[in-house]
Amino acid sequence: MMTTRVKNEILLTISTYLDDRLSGKEKEEFEAHLSSDRETREMLESLRAVKLALSQAPRRTAPRNFTLTQEIARKIKRNAGVMPVFRFVSATAAVTAMLLFAFSYLFNPITAAAPMAKSAQENGIRRSAFEVNGQPVIITWADPYSSIGGMGGGGGGDVDAKSAESFSLESLAPAESAPVAEAAPAALPPELQAESPVLDAELPSITGSGPILGVAPSSADEESWDPSSSEKLPFIQMLDPWKIAGLAFLTVAILCGMGAILAGKKK
């Protein structure tokens, strides 16, 4: 069973033999192979017939003369003069536009701030290292005995007795005005836990979801920060001069490219 590759090689040899383009040695070898292989002989004859048929195909004469008139020749020369200019301008403008976009990326204050953003991300990772057992560090800013502060909320089921007790322990940590960082309930020392029941009794019971400590409630006169405010910048302010120049050059490149195509098509 012949592989496709062998078949293709034999076909190539037959075809080249037909045109008498095999070297002396190749020709001898092929003719020896021909005498012993019927399939190759048949293939040779059928390809010879195809070659003959194609060479007998009738020739046509041109239906008209394709000579150029003075007017057409002038037009072609004029377009031939314009086209290279369009091509050159188009190519140059395209390269300039690419360079400008590259500069825009390198020197843009937003993209250049990428390393700072990375640093901030690393800080975030470091901060998370303070978390105990996956719980965030709890920071109390005010007198914990007066009320339960924070902006608790969020969904969730009722707090069970155990978690409520845990909460009171956290909240009733040493009453100081300065912020105190405490570990999550699981990390509290046992002696502190032993003192907590007295204080626990004076606290109102908590139902609902567990509190989430965070930013203190903002007063009405405080100016709130809208994280999405940067997205509301007008489009033009988001473009730096590099980008504007790049867009201008890109437009020139496209227009000149179209001009070159049109000049090439004009007869």
């Binding site: 293709n8 076909l11 190539l12 037959i14 075809s15 017939a49 194609l54």
Partner: peptide
């Protein structure tokens, strides 16, 4: 050129 010619001739043979 040689290989394209060989394959084209074979195709032409099949068609003709």
């Amino acid at each position: 050129i040689k290989s394209r010619l060989a394959r084209a001739r074979q195709k032409m043979r099949d068609c003709l």
